[in-house]
């Protein structure tokens, strides 16, 4: 089980819920299980360009990207890049 923390814009799109406890093998599976997955991924299933994802404080790109196993991870944090706004 991993806890996914989302920023306020995404929380407001999920009835105010700021975190989600998700059971998933990979980071991509966990993110796609969220009720705001359509805002994180485009229609190709690609993570939107201005979305950063950190797993226990580490940029997900540094640990194998979306296919990386979550294993013992505790927290996934979604952060909007400053380049997005």
């Amino acid at each position: 089980m991993v806890r996914i923390v989302v920023p306020s814009v995404l929380a407001s799109e999920a009835e105010g819920k700021q975190s989600f406890d998700v059971e998933a093998e990979t980071l991509g599976d966990a993110l796609r299980a969220l009720p705001v997955a359509d805002l994180l991924f485009n229609e190709r299933g690609e993570l939107r360009h201005h979305v950063n994802v950190y797993v226990d404080g580490e940029d997900h790109r540094e640990r194998g990207g979306l296919v990386s196993p979550l294993e013992d991870a505790h927290e996934v944090r979604i952060v909007a890049m400053v380049s997005g706004g």
Partner: peptide, 8 residues
């Protein structure tokens, strides 16, 4: 349309 989260 959101600069980070796309069009809807």
């Amino acid at each position: 349309n959101h600069t980070t989260y796309g069009p809807t």
